[in-house]
Structures are given as C-alpha cells and as structure tokens.
Simulated scan of single mutants.
Amino acid sequence: MLRTPLIAGLIAAGSLAHAQSTVTIYGIADTGVERLTNVNAAGGSLTRMPNLTGTVPSRLGFRGTEDLGGGLQAFLNLETGIALDTGSLNNGGRLFGRASNVGLAGPFGRITLGRQINMTVLAVSSHVMGPSLYSFASHDPYIPNAISDNAIGYLKSFSGLTMGATYSLGRDVSSAGGPPGTNCPGESGTDSKACRQWTVLAKYDSANWGAAVSHDVMRGGPGAAFGMTSSAHTDKRTVLSGWGKLGPAKISGGVLHRERDNAAPLESNLVYLGASYPLTPALTLDAEYSRMDVKASPNDATMLVARGVYSLSKRTAVYAMVGRIKNKGASATSVSAGGAVGAGMGQTGLMMGVRHTF
C-alpha cells in the first residue's frame, strides 16, 4: 500500500528538479491455463500455465524522456519480461530483456543505443495475432525474440513512410539456451565479424492499409547455438507483410523467407494470413492460417488458430484460444510457444486467460 505513494513522490521530486523530464511506469500481466495433446511420442497430454506469453508477453517497463530544446529529445527505455507462472525473468534471464536502451530523437529521426527490438519485429507488428501463444511465431520462435544486444538503431517516419535499421556488435550475450539465449556475444578482438547482425526496414501505413519489407542478417560465433559456431555462418530472414481494412474487419498476412548457411543448411518459407473482426464493441474474434514449407524436406507444418477476446474494461480482458497444428516428416513444431510435441504428430491446444494492462 505504501509503494505507490512512494514511487509517485519520487517521480514528483524528479519533475520539480527537471521540469521537462517525464518517467512513465507501464506493464502488462497476461496468463492463463492451457491443455495440449500429443506432447510426446507416446501421445501424452499436458495441462499447464505457460510462462512465455498469452495474447501478449507479460512485462514491466520504464520510459523516460527529457526535452532538450530545439526539437531535440533524450529518451530511455527499460523493460523486463516476466513469466507470471513463477515470477521469473524471460528473455534469456536478463533483468531488462525486452529493452535496455538510451537515445536521442529529433527532426533527423531516432537514434537508439543498447538492447532493442530490431526491424524484423516492426515488419510483422501490424499482424492481427501479434505475439500470441498460438500464432505463426510458433513456427519460427525467433520472431518474438528479434531483440538485439549491443545494437545501434535508427528510425525515421514521415508521410506514412517509416525507414529503419539496426546494427549489432554482438547480438546475444545470454547463454540461457533457446531462441532468447543463443550464446553469441561477439565484440571479439580476434574475429570482428563474430555475432554481428544488421536489419533494415521500409514500412508504409495509411488509414486503411499498410505494407512492410525487412531484411535480417545474423552471423555466428564460437560456441553459438543452432550450429552457428563460426562467423562464416549466416542466418538470413526477409519479410514481406501487409494489412488492410475491409469494413470493420482487419486482414493481415505475409511471407517470411529464411536461408541459413551453416553445417545444417536450411531454406524455408513461412506463409501466414489472419483476420480480426469486432463482433461487438467488447468482443473481438481473430483467426489465422500459417504454413511452414521447408525446402527439399518433408518436415513441413500447417496451423490453424482461432481466438476470442472480451474486454471487461479498457485495461482488462478475458480470452480463449484454440489451435491445431499438423506436422509432417520429422517436424516437431508445437502449436504453443515453448511447448513440445511428438515428431510428425498433430497437436491441439486450448487456452483460457486474463490480460491486464497498466
């Protein structure tokens, strides 16, 4: 009960000392309970509380800005990813794993230094399903984890057009494992190319439609995960995406082309298409089709997802989602982000949850 007045008092004191500075505390708490089938080769089922995301990942963040005059502004962003099921940290165990950066903004655009989302995230940001537990990102877990360490970012918007780029000197210092912790710190005195990454974006948005294209190139380094153990290895992703309004409905989709050049080379196309329709002012229905096509391989997967979100207020909503994935060959893609499924097996997932923003 004493914490809120204390924080408010500290912020107020800071505002007295620096009248043009502001600090915003924000967050999202989103979790529920899900049921998954075929979580192993024996066909077992699992009931769990997911720790990665619900409709969106849970987080606690701080944004600060200061007006420096002449159209120049300083800013910072610190954002923590939280696993609500246990209270632990997501994003590779980092304290501020979703964002940890500082920068300057002005008529020239926005320059950001530190850990930050890269242009792959912005290229898919208009998709109706977002980073949901069941979404096209289940096929490629890098998509919701396209956040780069040691990065220099630039973004400029004008007349509906957004141009941006990032360059990372060492894309991932965490060795926690999985997509958010790939053990590629870079910044090497013996190999200047190790773990470097660059991304670029061109994006246009109007009132009724939008389109985006991005390109993402990451290099490997000694000991890096997923076979990316040399700076000669590259993993490239190109996204073409778009969205449009059809009456009250929103339709969005795209294709992500990937080429990985290492000891286990991979080429694939991920196609996704989604729609969102406000059935009432409080109830929204969403649906998505996605397919992963791995070239020269039978290891493909197709997924269908449906979701209903009911807003109890501007800040609180309840939701239910159902997903079904069909794996072929040795594909073992779970319908649920961070989940497991028997190789070549289908899987059905059902989740019900609550989301609150502040």
Rank of each mutant, 00 (worst) to 15 (best):
W209C: 09
R237L: 13
G210I: 00
W209L: 08
A232G: 12
L240D: 05
K250V: 13
H233I: 06
A225T: 07
A211R: 03
V217E: 09
G210N: 02
L256P: 06
M218K: 15
G247E: 06
S214K: 08
P222G: 06
F226C: 08
M228V: 01
S214A: 15
L256Q: 10
K250T: 14
A211I: 08
K245C: 02
G221E: 01
G221Q: 05
A212F: 03
A225D: 09
V255K: 03
G242L: 00
G210E: 01
A232I: 10
P248N: 08
A211K: 03
V213H: 05
S252R: 06
N208K: 14
G210Q: 03
N208W: 15
S230I: 03
S230W: 02
A211V: 13
G254K: 11
G253F: 11
K250W: 12
G227K: 08
A207R: 12
V217D: 10
T234E: 00
K250E: 12
W243V: 04
D216Q: 04
I251D: 01
A232W: 08
L240E: 07
L246V: 07
R219W: 14
G227A: 11
G254Q: 11
G223W: 08
V255D: 05
K236W: 00
L240G: 04
G223E: 03
L246D: 01
K250N: 07
L246A: 06
M228W: 01
L256W: 11
R219N: 14
T234R: 00
A249C: 12
L240A: 15
V213W: 10
P248Y: 08
D235A: 10
G242R: 01
S230Y: 01
L240I: 15
A232C: 08
A207Y: 11
V213M: 08
R237V: 01
A249F: 14
K245Q: 13
G210T: 01
A249L: 10
W243Y: 09
V255P: 03
A232M: 10
K236M: 00
G244C: 09
G223H: 04
G223C: 06
W209S: 05
S252A: 15
I251S: 01
G242V: 00
N208F: 15
D216G: 02
A224T: 04
G242Y: 00
G210R: 01
G244A: 11
T234N: 00
G220F: 10
R219V: 13
H215L: 15
A207V: 10
H233G: 11
L256K: 11
H233W: 09
G244V: 07
G220I: 06
M228D: 06
D235N: 13
W243H: 08
P248T: 11
G220W: 02
G247H: 10
D235Y: 07
T238V: 03
V239W: 05
A211F: 10
K245L: 13
T238K: 03
S241N: 04
G242E: 01
D216E: 06
G254C: 12
K236E: 00
V255A: 10
A225G: 13
R219L: 13
G254M: 07
G227Y: 09
G253I: 05
G242C: 02
H257Y: 15
G242D: 01
A211G: 08
I251Q: 06
H215T: 14
W209R: 09
